[in-house]
Nucleic acid binder design. Structure first.
Length: 296
DNA sequence: TGACAGGGGGTGT
DNA sequence: ACACCCCCTGTC
């Protein structure tokens, strides 16, 4: 089992800002990614692509990491920094968000220091958000774990990567349903068939300007505006993508007075009000609203 | 402890 | 508007 794995020593990830445990939890388990789980007290274990890694914050607030000493399952500091978007451009984006003129946004940012948008693989992000319709995070994680265990490749004992779209194309809808997908199984099955007949389609889509990329993603069965924006934000670093889900509808109504606005109107407001980094702002608002709901 | 409603981070018709 | 599919959660 996993206990037998040999891990590297813990080392500090240089360049990552100090962050509280709650920021780390929100970053890894707040709805951007679905493959992070507590491994021990304060330790998060996660998988993306063929990388396995553990993260924790020390008492000094600095981020520490370790990875299995197995060829093909580990991660380098460079890869980890990319995933966590450790980049001067990130600091710049934080700087130009309108928190100076938006006290609520300022409050949300102060509450989750270190929170950011992960840079996840495009294909895996699409798969995860095709699983997400009317599901809560716990359920999405359960589905995604089953997909990895049953259909993915084993990277190390007990650690499985997600199946890629080529592999998914040869999986029957019934097998997908067995992974608790329900009506989402058809979406994934049909998307896999479509992508199998269009080599390069995903990579081309990822390279397009935001509006065109979104329009193309919306052609896929099971992908509407919300899912497309999530895929572009969390899987392609498009900070202008502003996913409007029930939480954002709630928060924009309560904190910005947009009572009974429709999703498309809220999306427009978000792009205008928050600007080029609307998606990044959205993540802070989202974290705040979720925490507020939890406290009740 | 165990059964039972109710509703869910959306899309497609 | 409503179905889709079925698991999680709260409650008795």
């Amino acid at each position: 089992m996993a206990e037998e794995l040999s891990w590297t020593a813990w080392s500090v990830l240089d360049g990552f800002p100090k962050l509280a445990a709650r920021s780390l939890a929100e970053l890894l388990d707040g709805g951007q990614a679905f493959r992070w789980n507590p491994a021990a007290d304060g330790v998060w274990r996660g998988i993306w692509s063929n990388h396995v890694v553990e993260l924790k914050t020390g008492s000094d607030g600095r981020l520490r990491w370790r990875t299995p000493e197995i060829r093909g399952a580990g991660v380098t500091a460079v890869q980890l920094r990319s995933y966590l978007d450790v980049d001067p451009a990130f600091e710049q984006r934080m700087e130009v968000m309108p928190w100076r003129s938006d006290p609520h946004l300022a409050r949300c940012i102060e509450s989750f220091p270190g929170l950011r948008i992960l840079r996840q693989p495009f294909d895996e992000t699409l798969l995860c958000f095709l699983c997400s319709a009317t599901k809560q995070i716990v359920q999405i994680k359960q589905i995604v774990e089953l997909l990895a265990k049953r259909l993915g490749r084993e990277l190390a004992p007990g650690f499985f990567r997600l199946p890629n779209w080529t592999e998914l194309a040869s999986v029957s809808e019934a097998e997908l349903r067995a992974c608790l997908l329900g009506f989402r199984a058809r979406y994934i099955h049909e998307t896999a068939q479509f992508l199998a007949g269009q080599p390069g389609w995903l990579a081309e889509t990822q390279a397009l300007p935001y509006a065109e990329a979104k329009a193309r993603l919306c052609l896929l069965p099971g992908v509407g505006e919300k899912v497309a924006d999530c895929v572009l934000l969390f899987g392609a670093g498009r900070m202008e993508a502003f996913p409007v889900d029930v939480w954002i509808i709630k928060t924009m109504a309560r904190r910005y007075g947009l009572e009974s606005w429709k999703p498309v109107q809220i999306a427009h407001f978000g792009r205008v009000h928050f600007g080029a980094n609307a998606g990044l702002a959205q993540q802070f608002l989202f974290a705040w609203e979720r925490e507020t709901a939890k406290k009740k």
